[in-house]
Write a protein that binds this DNA or RNA. Structure first.
Lengths: 213, 213
DNA sequence: GTCTATAGTCCGATAGAC
DNA sequence: GTCTATCGGACTATAGAC
């Protein structure tokens, strides 16, 4: 088997296992045996378990974040330099939604993988944030501040924090929630879920800042 | 040492370790040694690691949820039978905020403990939800539906899901986010954070339901 | 680059003396 | 109810043959 295929197989299996069990709960023995590669190849190709998982994020998140930035730029152009709130959140959310389907079939692994990152140890998360999300966050906060020039900067940042938390929490729990909703005869398709989330977040951002109480 | 004290020491230490490392990442050896009790007492008092953690949630969550329901009832009375959105979210959030301080000092363990539950394995979460949150969720969804009679029930449920996700995500990441905000000279006290979150969620719920697109 | 074999460590759980 | 001692098994990482 060639080197790139071995690497690719491990990364793919990592995504599945990480989404189901998180970093501490996944084992390299299960990973390599399910991926059909040798246990020792983890260290040969990645150096350590941590770097394997970091690489998994990098390879999946980076292209997604580029798409997010492209969409944000298009939303800015469409608004003559200032993107609409809806445009901003679509830019943030649609690239995630697109990756929830593999060959047209709903696949929760990517969603849960992204959402689960929120609960990793502070050290791990910090490194992940610096490597993959710091720049993106800054750009989106800028865009939001431009879209809502009357909202104090401090509130923009807090609300972005709430919005990202909501998105990640929704992702990690979507599978179970969708199952419950389905039992009640509710619609659970991924597009309508993301549209509802987008509208919820936009409305949250548009809320007034209350006077000091 | 008497039995209740041993139990209590373990539960307290469990809260700290669970909030920092999650279920898979915490070890009973560390727990018992830090708590100053014997390793074997975990199984004697709780039967298993899982039941220890379940007991930890139960003992902390149940009184909090009772307080939430009391506050919700008071908010209903204040509104002649229908609570305001603000009253509902205060009922949900204030009992959490109160527990973020121990002897007047900010203590993130409880917040992170609650927030972290969101990323546990589906089985564990499901059991935790049934035992501790199912009834509460139903009551709060009812209250929200009454407060917003024109919002379709399906949207009430989705938005509650988003709101809870936002709350949990915010809790688990609050420590790190607050540190970053503090570096920027922002205010980070827990009361203003929860007030901002409440206003964000209320505004999200008040948003219009868009027509089918 | 892939394999086997294993070092070295940690884990949850439990048996049995006190 | 608490202790020691240990079982039986999992884990990551690595050395070294091919």
């Amino acid at each position: 088997m060639n080197a790139t295929e071995t690497r690719q197989r491990m990364l793919q299996e990592a995504e599945k296992l990480y989404s189901e069990h998180g970093f501490d709960g996944m084992s390299l023995r299960t990973l390599t045996s399910d991926a059909g590669v040798n246990l020792a190849s983890v260290n040969y190709h990645f150096g350590s378990k941590k770097e394997l998982v970091m690489a998994m994020f990098q390879e999946r998140i980076m292209p997604m974040n580029e798409e997010r930035l492209e969409r944000l730029n298009k939303a800015r152009e469409a608004g003559n330099g200032v993107a609409s709130l809806e445009g901003i959140f679509d830019a943030l959310l649609i690239p995630v939604a697109e990756r929830a389907q593999v060959n047209g079939v709903l696949d929760m692994h990517f969603l849960k993988m992204v959402g689960r990152a929120i609960s990793e140890s502070d050290d791990f998360w910090h490194e992940l944030f610096i490597r993959n999300f710091q720049e993106l966050s800054k750009t989106f906060v800028e865009a939001l501040a431009e879209a809502l020039p009357d909202l104090p900067r401090e509130d923009v940042e807090w609300r972005f924090h709430f919005a990202v938390s909501s998105m990640l929490g929704t992702l990690v729990k979507h599978g179970q929630f969708a199952r419950r909703m389905q039992g009640l005869g509710r619609s659970t398709d991924i597009e309508s879920m993301f549209r509802r989330l987008r509208d919820f977040l936009c409305a949250g951002f548009r809320g007034q800042v209350e006077a000091m109480r």
